[in-house]
Amino acid sequence: MKHKLFRLANRLLRNIPEAEDVVQEVFIRLWNRRDKLTQYKSLEAFSVTITKNLCLDRLKSKRNKTDELTEQNVKPERLTPAKAMELNDSYRMINKLINRLPEQQRLIIQMRDIEGYEHAEIAEMLNTNENAVRVNLSRARKKIRDDMQKQYNYEYTGH
């Protein structure tokens, strides 16, 4: 489960040490609530929700501190081992494209296309409805396809 939570945190924060930090905090919170954990239908869904909330809190406070840090202004990222193995360019390119999406779309792409959660589960974890999940998913998928297309046209038609 720590890998799944890390992938989500890293998708949102786009920063490996910070993402690891968040995952640790999630486990600390779970530990502190260990007596009450049985009351949750799904421990995984509960953990994902905490992870998402902690990441969004961090992003919010960061935005307040440095207004100029926008979605477009992403620091160059250190590679995780899996990424280092996947040295092919398209992997890095798609990763970058997804990381430029708005938070909500990033979350939903991560949860659906990478982790494979059902629409209903995503809706519950994001505290929204299935239709909103579909709409955001559709926007994100089209945007990724368009951006990929642009990249290819740029590469093949020359500068």
């Binding site: 890998h3 992938r7 398209s90 990763n95 296309d113």
Partner: peptide
């Protein structure tokens, strides 16, 4: 292919 590989990433 990206989604497949991305689901294998691990906490480093």
């Amino acid at each position: 292919a990206f989604y497949d590989a991305a689901s294998e990433e691990e906490l480093p």
